[in-house]
């Protein structure tokens, strides 16, 4: 594995030309993963329908992927990408892995290939949950990166099974009768572990070194790695330009999506998110930066502190309870060895 600083100088396969929103966490993740995969091994990405797909693979726009015009002898720089449907990225990746393995097995392919599947919320947790879990279950030697922005962002910010409770989405709008999403998020980290993944992580590129290290580890595994990437969405979460990394760090530290890395046989740990709520940033700080929670919290004009809106105290307390459950569950999962 190379060092973080060295990786930062690598040639990313994510190129200029995407139409992702400025400040989109997906582009940060693509850029970092793109550099990690510049390791001398042929790279193949599969991508489900998502913002990350329609914003990078639209013809006649520039295809925002590749490593430029490497000479033919530099096959290690070679890069390919394929999109099929929302839910298919893991299955496509598994197929590519199998074909390269069977060709390698008979001596027809002598160069190694690394395969990465990329999905969004819909492609991994909703229409694509079946495909995700079964590819993990079959122990395919691929890395899956799931970009979790808690929406079906591509189709207009509808509820996804990863949506934070009480968040305002276009299909769980906050109103006088219903205060946004009333469903607890799917426990996707636990599901991936239970299905048989060898490495499961929830980590933001805001933790640059750990993100790169986790991705490098994932690519070197003999089994399946699943990396969930919390992806603040400037358009859907409704926050101000320039706050993406701050929100990513705050969300992880306050317990909404704690950083977590687990390996089969070794266990795992929660990073930068104490078990005790009093030792973590208040969730109000995270909620207050986003207008998707504007029905729940407001800024006190005198003190500047974020607080529950009048009549929303019980909902905020409820959310606090879920966050604590979330943190404790990840600590418990970290103790599992297999």
């Amino acid at each position: 594995m190379s060092g973080y600083k060295e990786t930062a100088t690598h040639d990313s396969c994510f190129r200029p030309g995407s139409t992702l929103c400025p400040g989109c966490m997906e582009s940060v993740a693509f850029q970092n993963l793109g550099r990690v995969t510049d390791n001398g091994v042929k790279t193949i990405f599969t991508i489900g329908t998502s913002c990350g797909e329609v914003s990078t693979l639209a013809y006649p726009n520039v295809v925002a992927w590749g490593r430029g015009d490497a000479p033919p002898e530099m096959f290690g720089k070679s890069f390919s990408i394929i999109h099929n449907v929302f839910e298919s990225a893991p299955t496509l990746a598994e197929a590519v892995r199998d074909v390269s393995d069977v060709l390698t097995g008979c001596g027809a392919l002598e160069r190694p290939v690394q395969v990465v599947a990329m999905s969004g919320d819909g492609g991994a947790f909703a229409i694509g949950l079946r495909g995700l879990l079964h590819t993990i279950y079959r122990r395919s030697r691929i890395t899956m990166m799931v970009l979790v922005n808690e929406f079906f962002a591509n189709t207009g910010f509808q509820y996804s099974p990863a949506a934070t409770p009480f968040s305002d989405t276009s299909t769980t709008p906050a109103g006088k009768a219903i205060p946004g999403n009333m469903q607890k998020p799917l426990d996707y980290v636990h599901l991936a572990m239970a299905a048989g993944a060898d490495l499961v992580a929830q980590i933001s590129p805001a933790y640059g070194k750990l993100f790169v290290k986790t991705m490098e580890k994932s690519l070197s595994l003999k089994g399946t790695a699943v990396v969930f990437v919390p992806a603040p969405c400037i358009s859907g979460w409704k926050y101000d330009d320039g706050q993406t990394l701050e929100l990513a760090l705050l969300g992880a530290r306050c317990g909404i999506f704690p950083t977590f890395v687990w390996e089969r046989g070794q266990g795992g740990s929660v990073k930068d998110c104490p078990r005790e709520a009093t030792e973590r940033p208040r969730i109000e700080e995270f909620l207050g930066m986003q207008r998707r929670f504007a029905h729940l919290v407001e800024r006190d004009r005198e003190t500047g502190a974020i607080r529950a809106r009048a009549g929303q105290e019980a909902h905020l307390e409820n959310l606090r309870g879920w966050v604590q459950e979330n943190v404790e569950r990840l600590y418990a999962l970290g103790e599992l060895k297999k």
Partner: peptide, 18 residues
């Protein structure tokens, strides 16, 4: 080109014109 023996992109989006 295929995914293994080429630098290529499959399954792109297109505008209605294309």
């Amino acid at each position: 080109p295929g995914l293994i023996n080429g630098d290529t992109a499959f399954g792109n989006c297109v505008t209605s014109r294309y």
